[in-house]
């Protein structure tokens, strides 16, 4: 079944098409035009809107949605030193709740593709990376999750306390051999 989006103005990124439309099949754009529109199984008409490419978020830490408003007037290092001990308390449940909030807000503001850089993996708390991937799938966001890590705790001259140091970094990424698509997700879910 094909899908047709009509808008008062379609901005493709290079062209501006008044009373334009975008015709979609199987998740891919098959036609862009103006005037008489092709037939489609589902039609959405937005005459009072500008249709643009979905917005892309190239940097985020979604778990932080649960720690907003801390250190309102601090530098990065002051802010980090105050927040590391709070972040050391996160678990899969708090990451899931925070990710759902971050993703909902992104989608509601027109973002369709987002990364997330998750680098706090407190010892003995499984399921954090899975929570991110599952949340994106549930909410319908195209998602590039970054498996982060920290290995330079304060005892080794780094900024973060040793309690959030993760000496077995990116291990979750080591096991997958398909870099994209569902099989990669399954592999990460198994190994994260």
């Amino acid at each position: 079944m094909s899908f047709l989006l009509k808008a008062g103005l379609v901005y493709t990124g290079t062209r501006e098409i008044e009373n334009g439309w975008v015709h979609v099949r199987h998740g891919v754009i098959i036609e862009v035009g103006s005037g008489p529109a092709p037939e489609a199984g589902e039609i959405v008409d937005e005459p009072n809107c500008v249709a643009t490419p979905g917005l892309v978020n190239a940097h985020d830490h979604m778990y932080q949605w649960a720690t907003r408003g801390y250190v309102a007037d601090g530098t990065l290092f002051e802010w980090l030193r105050a927040l590391y001990p709070v972040w050391a308390r996160i678990d899969a449940d708090s990451v899931r709740v925070a990710a759902r909030a971050a993703m909902a807000r992104l989608l509601l503001c027109g973002c369709t593709l987002s990364t997330d850089h998750h680098y706090v993996f407190p010892h003995g708390r499984p399921g954090l990376f899975e929570a991110l991937v599952e949340s994106a799938r549930e909410l319908g966001l195209r998602f590039h999750p970054c498996r982060g890590s920290m290995s330079l705790g304060d005892s080794r001259g780094g900024l973060p306390p040793d309690s959030v140091d993760d000496r077995a970094p990116s291990r979750s990424a080591a096991g997958f051999d398909v870099p994209r698509g569902g099989r990669a997700v399954l592999a990460v879910l198994r190994l994260a």
Binding site: C49, T52, P53, H144
Partner: peptide, 29 residues
């Protein structure tokens, strides 16, 4: 849009052209 897609290595996202992913946002004006 396209700049972010390039950072993420997605040449199939970021513009509304034939063959690209159907990722579209409609903003009220």
């Amino acid at each position: 849009t396209q700049g972010g897609a390039e950072c993420l290595g997605r040449d199939d996202c970021g513009t509304l052209e034939v063959g690209k992913c159907a990722d579209i946002a409609c903003f009220r004006v």
